[in-house]
Design a binder for these strands. Structure first.
Lengths: 219, 219
DNA sequence: TCTAAGAGTTCGGTCCACCGAAAACAAGTA
DNA sequence: TACTTGTTTTCGGTGGACCGAACTCTTAGA
């Protein structure tokens, strides 16, 4: 069986793509996320399909099989546990953890992950609010809306922020936005592409890019 | 620069080979330690030589250049810090850590290693007594003798045990031998290949294999 | 000094992961 | 229906890391 790092990574990216966007997961989507040429991804997907880890309608959607999902979740679990560990134990900031975790997730054993989880108190989400899959493959998904879809006047709480752009995370930290921050959507200026939000007693302006990366839950 | 895992591993193994045995480090020695065919090692050594990380007298000895040594020590440092962490923080036993560290050493960043070292209190040796190289590339080498070279009647203290054979480590743990154990060499039975040692108030018999893997310092 | 065993190297070949270029396809538009 | 655009696939090719088989070198012993 001995799954390679590349295999784990493809499966994880398929899972992430499904988690953060709707619409079909295509070769193009994966190529963008992986930073690879479409031809490379096409070939790899064919092999993973042959190995029973993916299903792939030619020229169409790519999905995880049960086996593929199991492996993907194991990797996601490791990634998020490691991110949590880096922040909690080693004092990393939330914008520093992604790259480190991206490599480590393929290097730690299942045993390591389980012992780390126990040591961290079986956390159910990581520093960005992403849910951490359990060892048995279950994930606790809370329904959340992207901030750019919230009606003005609503009071919400930051539940989750995409961990993929360190610059965004650094910026949000400077703005005082973190997991749990309570905010009110003040005004949407769709023409300009900004959203005004109130929190900590003041009004701040966010761009759509940021708003789309922030998921909130009702306060 | 971006050094690959394979590169790091070759350099580390050259360093380890020099540390644990005298005599020249040859292609054959590396092939055995790495579990690879001699032809593979020969080719790899040629490439590493071209990259200025090794020197290699044809058909002869293999040595690290200054650059190679720097890289090797960085990897050894990571390996030993990780082993320490696994025992101290995650509760691994000393026979469980090697395989996990063998993979992780190539996955963690220098930053990770430095922060981990700080968190662990800048330890100067790992659970097997192996010295942990500092970030600046210095290593604190204490003079130690292999247990099989000690004269009967001498009182010594276990300073270090090879981490490469988990079975040996498990066995020693069962026998109550660990780093710091004070013992007296009672009798050497060279013809049989055993050494009788006294410790914890009783006499125990060790084979030469074990004795050679144990390094001691004067008590 | 010669030679044979053992150690090291060279050579051809495999597999994996990747690429660019060109062909094949899907889907919307004329 | 035919075309055009953008996506996907196929194809040939590269480089890294490995292997076994055949060849070459070193060296110890006759």
């Amino acid at each position: 069986m001995a799954e390679t790092q590349v295999t784990e990574n493809y499966l994880k990216v398929v899972w992430n793509a499904r988690e953060w966007s709707d619409g079909p997961v295509t070769v193009g989507v994966l190529a963008t996320r992986l930073g690879l040429a479409p031809s490379s991804v096409s070939g790899a997907v064919r092999k993973l399909t042959e190995r029973g880890l993916l299903t792939h309608a030619k020229y169409g959607d790519i999905e995880l099989t049960d086996d593929g999902q199991r492996l993907a979740l194991a990797t996601v679990r490791k990634h998020r546990l490691i991110e949590t560990f880096l922040v909690e134990y080693l004092g990393y900031t939330w914008d520093e953890v992604h790259d480190e975790a991206e490599v480590l997730e393929h290097a730690v054993s299942d045993t390591f992950a389980d012992r780390l989880a126990a040591k961290l108190g079986e956390p159910d989400h990581d520093p960005h609010g992403d849910p951490i899959p359990r060892a048995d493959g279950t994930v606790h998904l809370v329904e959340q809306a992207a901030l750019d879809t919230i009606e003005p006047g609503r009071h919400v709480r930051v539940a989750r922020v995409s961990d993929e752009d360190p610059d965004l995370l650094r910026h949000l930290a400077e703005l005082g936005i973190t997991i749990g921050t309570a905010l009110e959507v003040h005004r949407r200026q769709d023409a300009i592409g900004t959203i005004d939000v109130d929190y900590n007693g003041a009004c701040h302006i966010l761009g759509l890019t940021a708003a789309r990366s922030i998921r909130v839950s009702p306060n």
